[in-house]
Amino acid sequence: MKWLSLVLFLSLPVLADIAKPPPPAPAAVAPEPQHPQGIEKVPMGVIEGGWAYVYAAWGAGLLGLVGYAVSLYVRRSEAPPPGAP
Protein backbone atom coordinates (compact mmCIF):
# COMPACT_ATOMS: atom_id res chain seq x y z
CA MET A 1 0.00 0.00 0.00
CA LYS A 2 2.79 2.40 0.96
CA TRP A 3 4.59 1.40 -2.18
CA LEU A 4 1.52 2.04 -4.27
CA SER A 5 0.92 5.43 -2.69
CA LEU A 6 4.55 6.34 -3.31
CA VAL A 7 4.30 5.32 -6.95
CA LEU A 8 1.09 7.25 -7.34
CA PHE A 9 2.57 10.27 -5.63
CA LEU A 10 5.65 10.18 -7.82
CA SER A 11 3.48 9.89 -10.88
CA LEU A 12 1.47 13.01 -10.11
CA PRO A 13 3.56 15.15 -12.47
CA VAL A 14 2.86 12.64 -15.24
CA LEU A 15 -0.82 12.80 -14.46
CA ALA A 16 -0.77 16.56 -14.46
CA ASP A 17 0.57 16.29 -17.97
CA ILE A 18 -2.11 14.01 -19.28
CA ALA A 19 -5.04 15.48 -17.40
CA LYS A 20 -6.91 17.14 -20.17
CA PRO A 21 -7.98 20.07 -20.27
CA PRO A 22 -6.54 21.79 -17.16
CA PRO A 23 -9.14 22.55 -14.52
CA PRO A 24 -10.75 25.79 -15.50
CA ALA A 25 -10.13 28.74 -13.24
CA PRO A 26 -12.84 28.91 -10.61
CA ALA A 27 -14.03 32.29 -11.83
CA ALA A 28 -14.56 31.00 -15.36
CA VAL A 29 -17.09 28.36 -14.30
CA ALA A 30 -19.32 30.50 -12.15
CA PRO A 31 -18.21 29.30 -8.73
CA GLU A 32 -20.63 28.74 -5.90
CA PRO A 33 -20.89 32.11 -4.26
CA GLN A 34 -20.86 30.75 -0.71
CA HIS A 35 -17.52 28.95 -1.07
CA PRO A 36 -15.40 30.46 -3.79
CA GLN A 37 -12.20 29.30 -2.18
CA GLY A 38 -10.89 25.77 -1.76
CA ILE A 39 -12.13 24.47 -5.09
CA GLU A 40 -9.83 21.76 -6.20
CA LYS A 41 -9.70 18.89 -8.57
CA VAL A 42 -10.97 15.58 -7.28
CA PRO A 43 -8.17 13.06 -6.77
CA MET A 44 -7.57 10.16 -9.10
CA GLY A 45 -10.23 7.76 -8.06
CA VAL A 46 -8.26 4.88 -6.59
CA ILE A 47 -9.71 3.05 -3.61
CA GLU A 48 -7.49 3.17 -0.56
CA GLY A 49 -7.65 0.38 1.96
CA GLY A 50 -10.90 -1.53 2.01
CA TRP A 51 -9.50 -4.83 3.26
CA ALA A 52 -12.47 -5.08 5.62
CA TYR A 53 -14.73 -5.55 2.60
CA VAL A 54 -12.42 -8.21 1.17
CA TYR A 55 -12.37 -10.14 4.43
CA ALA A 56 -16.14 -9.80 4.79
CA ALA A 57 -16.81 -11.19 1.30
CA TRP A 58 -14.30 -14.03 1.53
CA GLY A 59 -15.44 -14.74 5.07
CA ALA A 60 -19.02 -15.03 3.85
CA GLY A 61 -17.84 -17.58 1.29
CA LEU A 62 -15.93 -19.66 3.86
CA LEU A 63 -18.74 -19.53 6.41
CA GLY A 64 -21.19 -20.49 3.68
CA LEU A 65 -19.17 -23.56 2.69
CA VAL A 66 -18.84 -24.72 6.30
CA GLY A 67 -22.48 -23.92 7.03
CA TYR A 68 -23.83 -25.79 4.02
CA ALA A 69 -21.59 -28.79 4.72
CA VAL A 70 -22.86 -28.86 8.32
CA SER A 71 -26.45 -28.63 7.11
CA LEU A 72 -25.89 -31.63 4.84
CA TYR A 73 -24.34 -33.55 7.72
CA VAL A 74 -27.17 -32.71 10.09
CA ARG A 75 -29.89 -33.63 7.61
CA ARG A 76 -28.18 -36.92 6.85
CA SER A 77 -29.77 -38.38 9.97
CA GLU A 78 -33.21 -37.10 8.91
CA ALA A 79 -33.54 -39.61 6.16
CA PRO A 80 -33.64 -43.21 7.25
CA PRO A 81 -30.90 -45.30 5.72
CA PRO A 82 -31.99 -47.09 2.56
CA GLY A 83 -33.73 -50.32 3.32
CA ALA A 84 -34.75 -49.40 6.87
CA PRO A 85 -38.33 -50.24 7.77
Binding site: L4, V46, I47, E48, G50, Y53, V54, A57, W58, G61
Partner: peptide
Amino acid sequence: PEAFMSDVGRILYVHVPH
Protein backbone atom coordinates in the same frame (compact mmCIF):
# COMPACT_ATOMS: atom_id res chain seq x y z
CA PRO B 1 -4.23 -5.28 -6.62
CA GLU B 2 -6.49 -3.78 -9.26
CA ALA B 3 -5.40 -0.45 -10.73
CA PHE B 4 -8.41 1.48 -9.43
CA MET B 5 -10.16 -0.86 -7.01
CA SER B 6 -6.87 -1.80 -5.31
CA ASP B 7 -7.31 -4.71 -2.93
CA VAL B 8 -11.10 -4.48 -3.00
CA GLY B 9 -10.86 -5.99 -6.50
CA ARG B 10 -9.91 -9.30 -4.88
CA ILE B 11 -13.60 -9.93 -4.22
CA LEU B 12 -13.75 -10.80 -7.93
CA TYR B 13 -12.17 -14.19 -7.22
CA VAL B 14 -15.05 -15.35 -5.00
CA HIS B 15 -18.06 -13.36 -6.20
CA VAL B 16 -17.94 -14.46 -9.84
CA PRO B 17 -17.26 -18.17 -9.08
CA HIS B 18 -20.22 -18.31 -6.68
